[in-house]
Structures are given as structure tokens and as C-alpha cells.
């Protein structure tokens, strides 16, 4: 199984050193959505983050969230 890495850039960066072995890119996308939901709980207005998913060294998906407050 290929190994996927899930790195976070932005307000609270996280570098995924170990990675996760997953069946294919579709499984990695499902995992990315779930991970995005997990970290959404700590989202604050003003936060900007993006989740970058790579298969080994190759970037295959990114998912960005930008939270703004206007008042």
C-alpha cells in the first residue's frame, strides 16, 4: 500500500513524520476529509490553514480553510 502524509500549513502547522499506509488516493481523500473535520473543532475566526496530502513526496491534494470575522 502507498504511504500518504498529511501536513498542515498555517496558524497551527503540523508536520506528519510517520505517514499512513492507505489503499489508494480515494482512501487518502476520505481520510483528508475526516482529518479536516477533526481539526475544524479548534478553528478560530482569523485562522487560515491548509491541509496538504502527499503520496510519498508528491503532493496530490490540498484543502484550505480561511475563517474571517467581520465585526
Amino acid at each position: 500500500m502507498p504511504r500518504y502524509f498529511f501536513h498542515l500549513q498555517g496558524t497551527r502547522p503540523y508536520h506528519d513524520d510517520g505517514g499512513v499506509d492507505l489503499r489508494d488516493d480515494a482512501a487518502a481523500w476520505a481520510e483528508a476529509k475526516r482529518f479536516a473535520r477533526d481539526i475544524e473543532g479548534s478553528l478560530q475566526p482569523g485562522d487560515i490553514w491548509s491541509l496538504e496530502v502527499s503520496r510519498d513526496d508528491r503532493l496530490i491534494y490540498s484543502l484550505s480553510i480561511c475563517a474571517r470575522a467581520f465585526d
Binding site: Y14, E31, R34, R37, D38, I39
Partner: peptide
């Protein structure tokens, strides 16, 4: 129900 990446973190 937590992603494996978040379990690791």
C-alpha cells in the same frame, strides 16, 4: 470515528 492522522497527533 477520528481520522488516523488525528489519532496519531
Amino acid at each position: 470515528g477520528i481520522s488516523i492522522v488525528h489519532v496519531n497527533r
